[in-house]
Design a protein around this nucleic acid. Structure first.
Length: 176
DNA sequence: ACCCCGATCGTA
DNA sequence: ACGATCGGGGTT
């Protein structure tokens, strides 16, 4: 049974998407991992959002429809994977900051640069529609792990918002 | 054409 | 807590 998350999952309010992605399964070219950490970036009024100062070539993906990937290079050497949320022309996305692999060791990838490095996700995977995509998508698991909400990491402004979500047990899914 | 700095990581 | 690292976005 195919349980790929549909368009209307991603068009929900970004905070809902960020929370509900926890525990779901990210699939990329045959590698699978349970999402354990996310952050929300929401619109022009969020100073930490890349699109806070309008549309540019880099952040154009954020203005696309929900379910599209937004991948960018940071610190000259790491890539960050986001999934765009809400409606077209409303720039918002969820940063995928951590996954636990469904390999035999349940390898913990805790950090946005670590997971993209491990999966070999690069800018070539920017602006890819993750809905109805056979190799790059998120699958519903029915798992709703306990989580904490904290300030977002690595930003200067917008630290008052508790828009980072982390599961309490990064290996919890493995013991189900 | 160029300058500056970042949604990080690994080590101390 | 902090330094390494460097591509490219944003602005000149």
């Amino acid at each position: 049974m195919i349980t790929t998350l549909p368009r209307d999952f991603y068009t929900q309010p970004t905070l809902e998407v960020a929370r509900q992605l926890l525990g779901q399964k990210l699939v990329f070219q045959g590698i699978e991992g349970i999402i354990t950490e996310t952050e929300a970036y929401i619109g022009q009024d969020d100073p930490a959002c890349h699109a806070a100062r309008g549309k540019t070539p880099r952040n154009a993906a954020m203005f696309m429809q929900g379910g599209v990937s937004y991948v960018y290079l940071i610190y000259g050497m790491y890539h960050c994977l986001n999934i765009v949320t809400e409606q077209e022309d409303f720039p918002a996305a969820v940063l995928i900051r951590g996954i636990t692999l469904l390999d035999k060791d349940n390898t913990v990838l805790d950090g946005p640069g670590k997971l993209t490095r491990h999966l070999c996700i690069t800018r070539e995977h920017n602006q890819i529609d993750m809905v109805e995509n056979p190799v790059f998508y998120v699958e519903a698991t029915g798992y709703s792990p306990a989580y904490l909400a904290t300030p977002r990491i690595g930003i200067r402004e917008g630290t008052d918002k508790l828009w980072r979500f982390v599961v309490k047990d990064r290996k919890g899914y493995a013991s189900l």
